[in-house]
Nucleic acid binder design. Structure first.
Lengths: 207, 207
DNA sequence: TGCATTATTGACAGGTCGCCAATACGCTGC
DNA sequence: GCAGCGTATTGGCGACCTGTCAATAATGCA
């Protein structure tokens, strides 16, 4: 008996502990607003002292940044093979890629991207913007519209499209007012319109 | 001299004082995150005691709700006359109406709608959703697609469109990566596509 | 001019966050 | 097995922010 007493402190490998806390954070930021998640609650949920969170992640805000980064970092699209066929076909592949990424994290993704959690913290904005731009780059690549002239305007427009993707994700995941299939149709239609009709108008005659 | 001493307290008409504080709040919430705006700063900026803010608006969050409400409450569209002509023409009128509303408040509008400030406070969400739905209703009305069947799905899709409007506003107002004209073209194109192509697919055959 | 009304203030209590020295867990060599 | 040590972990301190409320002093009126 006395040999198997559970010690009051459990000493874990730093990486392990860090990941454990991170998992709790992802879960809690998923169903409560940023300001409603106190580090005390987080510590209690993770079964550690409050100070340990600061030790591993620095500020509460820093922890949130790590969560955001993990949410918006998208996996590779369709095992690297660029789809061929009509614009619509390629758009469908791209949209499916986006929807899969969204479905993976669900509620927390919506909370992070939709409400952007912390307010409009410039650092959070920067991370989200970078992720948006990266995603936009991927989408343009999939569509075969990469680079060329007016890339600044093009990327801005695809980021705008990203705003629609986020809103659609919220309708689908949290509201349940649209099915995945409906969202798919919607996003494909709009993406095709952007590439086929809008880009030539604002980007000048595409080479 | 002694007769014209400025008194340490200035006693204002309640409505006047309320509006003065509200103006300061709109300005400060416009260029700083919600959590970075302390009521102390707000009070100092407005030249009043901190307690007075609570006296007039209740909670800091309550004050923020008032700001949000003011931001997203849109004026009447084009003096009430429903536009006629092609779908594209009517879409152009609707988009212009939206862009004018955005331009009026500029930075603060972007901060409120884009980052949704407080986190994902349910009350804020409710206000923004109501505003979105109201705006969606107006847009559908302008387009002559009002009511009918599948109105739930339709409104959800127009709310999704609203997400794109917000993102476009951010690109235009704060980033400066798109001009008003470019945003106009983009939003009109997408809106026309939604009404003409997407709605019939997901809403079934429109009567 | 003196009074009553009430807009305005200042201080108090509760709560959260970042930091840091003290603590005890678990591995290592003997 | 057992003492020793590195370090993961803890608990409390100080600073800041917020909501509340009785006290205070402007301002209109008799």
């Amino acid at each position: 008996m006395s040999t198997t007493e559970t010690p009051r402190r459990r000493r874990l490998d730093p990486d392990e502990r860090r990941e454990q806390i991170l998992r709790c954070a992802i879960a809690m930021f998923g169903d409560r607003p940023y300001s409603a998640v106190s580090t005390s609650d987080l510590a209690k949920e993770a079964g550690v002292a409050r100070g340990l969170i600061n030790h591993y992640f620095g500020t509460k805000r820093d922890l949130y940044l790590v969560v955001v980064r993990q949410m918006v970092t998208l996996g590779p699209a369709g095992s690297g093979k660029l789809p061929t066929g009509s614009i619509r076909n390629r758009a469908e592949v791209g949209v499916d890629w986006l929807l899969n990424a969204i479905e993976e994290y669900g509620k927390t993704w919506v909370a992070v991207t939709g409400s952007e959690g912390i307010g409009d913290d410039p650092e959070v904005q920067r991370i989200l913007d970078e992720a948006d731009t990266a995603a936009a780059e991927r989408v343009l690549e999939l569509l075969g519209v990469a680079g060329a002239d007016h890339s600044a305007e093009l990327r801005a427009m695809v980021r705008t499209y990203g705003g629609m993707v986020k809103a659609a994700g919220r309708e689908w995941i949290t509201r349940g007012s649209l099915t995945r299939e409906q969202v798919r149709i919607l996003l494909v239609d709009v993406l095709v319109t952007l590439v086929r009709d809008t880009f030539p108008q604002v980007g000048g005659p595409v080479a």
